[in-house]
């Protein structure tokens, strides 16, 4: 969710060119009547314009693939554009979707603010909008139908609840937790910390004894964990805000002559392939999924919105949690 790269720019440009090409083709072939909420594609297929943030991480790539594949599976004609992490590109893409009179617009906003004008245009053109993965900050909630995405607080809560369940009924010996936070100020870091803290409050013997940022990276997680292993007299549990930091912590724990997963329990969030591999090897104890594969849910919502059905204003991504045996079972099919 951070930097943009020239390779991605190139890919983005190719994607943008492809969108332009389809747009031109659409203009050239059959100018369709502008029936309110009507189908733009002449064959009665639902047409969706989707504007993606970019392709800055493996998570995002998996997210894009999921949207494209599930659109094909659901028989939805997808017009996809990659914004290369620039808001102006997204606004341009949304305007072009409005001009093409697509049936529905879905997008993951690059930033939270500055969407009112273009979403107003979509509303006036009677094209419903669905937000995915990230929210927009606008007082006018009528600008979009629904927001589909993860709830990072819930992810933190799930992690905390598992830990509380582990020590349920045990003697009230203090349990020392160290926390590896994500990038300071990032929404997932703030929310995952908050949810976890609330959940572990249920058992007063569990406490977070140290908490530092590892910047969501492996080397960050490793360096912080190395320092914790020296400054903390006793560490029972590591709670990492993502898998990469947990993987770094594993290496630090091993270098300290301890066994990750046994001497020190590890909880993490994301469930990317490397994390799941470590979980199935017993080096991580529990992973809360942060699911990028929201394509099927998005297509489902799009069809409902198009049919005029009421949908909830906030839809959570279907997310699960994995313990070690579940990870072993799920690993062969893990795509990202």
């Amino acid at each position: 969710m951070s930097t943009l790269t020239s390779r991605r720019m190139l890919l983005g440009r190719i994607a943008a060119a492809a969108v332009l090409a389809t747009a031109l083709a659409a203009c050239g072939s059959a100018p369709t009547p502008a029936a309110p909420g009507g189908a733009a594609g002449g064959d009665g297929k639902l047409v969706m314009g989707f504007s993606q943030v970019g392709a800055e991480s493996g998570w995002r790539t998996a997210n894009t693939k999921s949207v494209q594949e599930s659109a094909a599976a659901a028989g939805v004609e997808l017009k996809f554009s990659d914004a290369q992490q620039k808001q102006e590109n997204q606004i341009k893409a949304i305007r072009s979707y409005i001009q093409q009179k697509v049936d529905i617009i879905a997008f993951s906003p690059v930033v939270e603010t500055g969407w009112d004008a273009v979403l107003q245009e979509a509303k006036r053109a009677n094209i419903p909008v669905i937000l995915t993965d990230r929210a927009v900050d606008s007082p006018d909630t009528s600008l979009y139908k629904t927001f589909l995405g993860s709830d990072f607080v819930v992810e933190g809560t799930k992690a905390g609840e598992w830990l509380v369940a582990q020590y349920q009924g045990a003697a009230a010996a203090p349990v020392a937790v160290v926390e590896l936070q994500g990038t300071t100020g990032a929404a997932p870091a703030i929310d995952r910390k908050e949810g976890f803290a609330k959940a572990i409050a249920a058992n007063p013997s569990i406490s977070v004894v140290a908490s530092q940022t590892g910047d969501f990276t492996r080397s960050g997680g490793k360096q912080v964990m190395e320092a914790f292993l020296k400054s903390q007299p006793k560490i029972d549990v590591v709670y990492a805000h993502n898998d990469d930091m947990a993987l770094g912590a594993i290496e630090a724990i091993e270098a300290a002559g301890k066994v990750p997963g046994k001497d020190i329990k590890i909880i993490s969030v994301d469930a990317v392939k490397d994390g799941m591999t470590a979980l199935s090897q017993g080096k991580i104890n529990f992973i809360v999924e942060c699911n990028p594969l929201l394509g099927p849910q998005l297509m489902d919502l799009a069809k409902k919105v198009h049919a005029g059905e009421q949908v909830p204003a906030r839809v959570l991504t279907e997310e699960t949690t994995f313990d070690q045996s579940q990870a072993t079972a799920a690993l062969p099919e893990r795509k990202y």
């Binding site: 951070s2 930097t3 790269t5 800055e56 991480s57 910047d215 990276t217 492996r218 080397s219 490793k222 990469d244 993987l247 770094g248 290496e251 490397d274």
Partner: peptide, 16 residues
């Protein structure tokens, strides 16, 4: 050294 330390190459963040 940096990539070997975490047995992985992270083109986004290594040496940032």
């Amino acid at each position: 050294m940096i990539s070997s330390n975490v047995t992985a190459a992270d083109a986004n963040n290594a040496g940032l």
